[in-house]
């Protein structure tokens, strides 16, 4: 009797572990199939011409030049606005906030913001920036909306990076007679740089692929722009932040929902491949840069 339950247990064990491994295999296969599908169907459409020519609304053979530039522009603008704010907020939460009721309210509010669907944040941007403040569909409105999506995540990341710096480092700073702020700016921040940089790069990947927050803020059209016009106030200048700007991710969505472009599928696969490759580079770059900085800034004792 005892032996038979033991045998059953052994058999169950074998099957269950096998089942777990099989499910892991399925997940890996899904990823390989996804990436393979995107790259194999997409890459043949990616050419120098595809990357450097403007899109066409009604004809075939359009490129993604302006969308690609718009994505990068919004990415840079968003990071420029959100990094200092997230850094400040992260410093407050990690270094100044006392564990009391007020702090827990602050944390809850930030958690709520981070869990809001990005379409809701996009609609808020539409309501406030596009309609109320009359910024219209513009890169600026888009950047603010994406900043709202990005801020809570980046703040949390900053807080965690700062928190990971050992308490002894703070005490060492205070023992040397440094003020709290000097300890933060001269000891804690430099020590946290690998974590901070990794967080910013990963958030760059999220911003680059963001679309739901942008369709009603940055708009769904990419008017022709001139890359030789360096005056940021001219409506045709590529630097003008007040022009409507469809990004790469929005372009893929738009092509597949309106369906007036004859080669929509080809362009979307090409654009998806470009999007994925950029994000792959960003992810790999963050890993590499993170570990490089960690080594360089004395993470390991030498």
């Amino acid at each position: 009797m005892k032996k038979s339950t033991n045998v059953t247990a052994q058999r169950n064990n074998r099957w269950a572990l096998l089942g777990i491994k099989a499910m892991v295999g399925v997940v890996v296969l899904i990823l390989i199939a996804l990436l393979g599908d995107i790259l194999i169907t997409g890459l043949p459409h990616v050419s120098w011409h595809f990357l450097t020519s403007p899109s066409k609304d009604f004809g075939a053979g359009g490129g993604i030049a302006n969308q690609l530039f718009n994505s990068i522009y919004i990415l840079v603008l968003t990071l420029l606005i959100s990094c200092p704010i997230a850094l400040g907020a992260g410093i407050y939460l990690s270094e100044f906030a006392r564990p009391n009721f007020l702090t827990s309210v602050i944390r809850t509010i930030i958690e709520v913001l981070s869990s809001l669907p990005s379409i809701v944040i996009g609609l808020f941007g539409y309501l406030i920036l596009v309609i109320k403040f009359q910024f219209d569909f513009s890169i600026f409105s888009g950047a603010i909306a994406v900043m709202l999506v990005n801020l809570p995540l980046l703040t949390r990341n900053t807080e965690e990076a700062l928190h990971a710096v050992p308490q002894t480092q703070r005490e060492a700073g205070w023992a040397l007679g440094l003020s709290k702020w000097r300890t933060i700016s001269r000891i804690i921040l430099p020590a946290a740089i690998p974590g901070l940089v990794t967080g910013v790069i990963l958030s760059a990947g999220r911003i680059f692929g963001e679309a739901a927050a942008l369709i009603y803020t940055a708009g769904q059209s990419a008017p022709l722009i001139s890359y030789t016009n360096w005056n940021p106030f001219s409506p045709t200048s590529f630097l003008n932040p007040m022009r409507p700007a469809e990004t790469l991710a929005v372009h893929i969505w738009k092509l597949n929902t309106d369906g007036i472009t004859p080669d929509a599928t080809q362009i979307s696969s090409g654009a998806s491949a470009v999007l994925i490759i950029v994000i792959l580079i960003i992810i790999l770059g963050s890993r590499w840069l993170g570990s490089y900085l960690y080594r360089k800034m004395g993470g390991t004792k030498s």
Partner: peptide
Amino acid sequence: ELLVGIPSVVYGFI
């Protein structure tokens, strides 16, 4: 990390 990184429009397109 890759599954997280793939943008939602690409999932939609696939």
